[in-house]
């Protein structure tokens, strides 16, 4: 999947990903329109299907609010690549079907606006802008199952049917 890189710093917290004042609704369009609003007002307007969010350490620290992950999903974000994640965001993103890739080298090899091609099953990022290819450790199998199902809801539906 190809997409553009949106790059941010460390400790990007859940309050700037989706501010508490918008937690009164779960409507996809509403959440998507306010994603990262307090950090980067241009994000929700310009983000495209397949883009990836790249950040330094401790991405998603703070609240358990799942809307911090779902708002990115509703914007079309396919993956978040960071040097490290806060655990609640990490779980929430997987459950929303977003790939979460913990890879410091990958972060350093991507700049804002780069065009990249991401293959989560083989664990490669091809930076089309710089021509560099970086490998990362693929996610555990059971996590890939959830992501490939499109999130935990679809995954559980399949499982509960069995």
């Amino acid at each position: 999947m190809k997409g553009k890189v949106w790059k941010y710093g460390k400790d990007v917290n859940t309050d700037v990903i989706l501010p508490g004042r918008y937690l009164d609704s779960y409507e996809p369009d509403y959440l998507a329109s306010h994603a990262l609003e307090d950090l980067d007002p241009s994000f929700s307007k310009e983000v495209r299907q397949g883009d990836i969010v790249v950040a330094e350490t401790n991405f998603g620290c703070g609240s358990s609010r799942e809307q911090a992950a779902s708002c990115l999903r509703y914007c079309g974000v396919q993956a978040v690549v960071a040097k490290s994640f806060a655990r609640l965001f990490y779980r929430n993103a997987i459950n929303q079907g977003i790939a979460v890739i913990e890879c410091p080298e990958c972060v350093d090899a991507m700049s804002k606006g780069d065009e990249v091609e991401l293959d989560i099953s083989s664990g490669t990022i091809n930076n089309l802008t710089t021509g560099q290819t970086i490998e990362f450790k693929p996610l555990p199998e059971f996590v890939m199952e959830i992501i490939n199902s499109g999130g935990l809801v679809e995954h559980l539906k399949k499982k509960l049917k069995k």
Binding site: S64, E66, A69, L88
Partner: peptide, 18 residues
């Protein structure tokens, strides 16, 4: 510990969580 809303729906259904 804290968990997300979707996985809580899974807990409500099954009583279990990874």
């Amino acid at each position: 510990t804290g968990i997300g809303a979707t996985e809580m729906a899974g807990v409500w259904a099954t009583g279990e969580l990874w």
